[in-house]
């Protein structure tokens, strides 16, 4: 009786994973298919779509654009996120909940509204020309909540008296941060960097509204979807992006959920 019910849930778990990953795995699968059409039966193995991909200059330009947005965005979001997380976990702040709520708002507003709101403000009201800068601004807004979440849980996870002990032993707030806080939150910082990088690198809608002439990779992919003859290239590119995102996020999650070196004492 008991044994059987365990079996059912386990079966469901496996089915769930299969359902989750199945559709995504089709992209890499068909990216090696020697046919212009994404359909069964397989016509044969080829890497020509990958060859075509690396020769596509528009694609490479989009890749460069994406990187030049995602890297600074991840750094800035993580730096701001760290300051914010420290302020929220280490000080008794009036209005703490309101601030946390405000930071999390971009997570619950449809991205399309963030996109148009930023577009109206930057382009029409303040007449800022659309560029990779405007994309980066939008991406910082959506990366901040992730960064703050990851770093808050990391900072809450370690004993506050470690920092107090350092101050007590004569170090200033600044050197305490670098000698104690930073080494202990480092896994969280790396995790946040990777998450923000991936979130920015893969983000489409806000980039769609806010990029001017220089398309980022997802915007480039979107523009290619209209042309059936370009689809195999998109498959090859998409497979690469999926694999990259998968690796980065897996590392980030591993770091984030990995053990915190502080042991909890019986005292509190």
């Amino acid at each position: 009786m008991r044994r059987r019910s365990i079996g059912w849930l386990e079966l469901y778990g496996l089915l769930f994973i299969a359902l989750l990953y199945g559709p995504m795995l089709l992209l890499p699968l068909f990216s090696f298919n020697d046919s212009l059409y994404i359909a069964f039966p397989f016509k044969g193995f080829t890497v020509k779509w990958y060859e075509a991909m690396v020769q596509d200059s528009a694609l490479l330009a989009a890749l460069r654009n994406s990187l030049s947005v995602a890297i600074p965005v991840s750094i800035v979001s993580t730096a701001f996120g760290l300051l914010t997380a420290k302020a929220l976990t280490r000080f008794r702040l009036p209005g703490r909940r309101a601030i946390v709520g405000l930071i999390m708002v971009p997570l619950v507003i449809p991205f399309i509204i963030l996109g148009i709101a930023l577009l109206t403000t930057l382009r029409k009201t303040f007449d800022v020309p659309l560029s990779l800068w405007t994309v980066a601004a939008g991406h910082i807004l959506i990366c901040l909540p992730f960064s703050v979440m990851v770093l808050i849980s990391r900072l809450e996870g370690f004993d506050r008296s470690l920092e107090e002990a350092s101050l007590d032993l004569g170090e200033s707030a600044w050197s305490t941060f670098w000698r104690i806080t930073f080494p202990i939150v480092l896994p969280g910082v790396v995790s946040s960097l990777l998450m923000c990088f991936t979130a920015s690198f893969d983000e489409f809608l806000i980039a769609f509204f806010l990029s001017g002439d220089g398309a980022t990779l997802p915007v480039f992919i979107w523009s290619q979807l209209r042309f059936p003859q370009k689809l195999p290239n998109v498959l090859a590119l998409g497979s690469c992006i999926l694999v990259l995102s998968f690796l980065l996020i897996a590392i980030a999650e591993k770091l984030r959920r990995g053990g915190i070196p502080t042991e909890k004492h019986s005292g509190f």
Binding site: I38, T198, F204, P218, L225, G238, A250
Partner: peptide
């Protein structure tokens, strides 16, 4: 297990939607 479950959410949403277009399409999978 947690990582296995979480990671797909972070991978390109656009590509996942595209995958379904490919699956359900008239000449699709």
């Amino acid at each position: 297990w947690l990582i296995l479950i979480t990671v797909p959410f972070w991978t390109s949403y656009l590509l996942r939607a595209f995958a379904w277009k490919v699956i359900l399409g008239y000449g699709g999978v």
